[in-house]
Amino acid sequence: MAKHSIMVIDDEKIVGDMAKLSFEQDGYEVETFLNGESALERLKERRFEVVVTDLKMKGVDGLEVLRSIKKLYPGVKVIMITAFANLDVAIEALRDDVHDFFPKPVKIKELKASVKRALGEE
């Protein structure tokens, strides 16, 4: 069986590195990106089953990533993580059909559980 694929976008390397390590431990295939632009480029080439993205990034931000993904691949689940949680943004993201929304620091266990739900494994 092919591995489930996850894309992680965060402008801080440590977030992507830690997420990659944790998800790979569970047998997922993971690609990480440091900005929205490069992630969207990659999405033109291939689909990922779940995308975990930071909200606040220079250039293309998390909400834009979310909208672009929903256009390209309506079925792909997007999980948003952010250090600057505010209700308005959360509501906006919900309107755009975000799968889940976490404040940073996010417990890795909870993020993994959310990914499992997104994949319909739980």
Partner: peptide
Amino acid sequence: EKLGGGYLFDVNY
């Protein structure tokens, strides 16, 4: 706890 490995955190945190 947050820097111990069980959380995704960034330098802002």
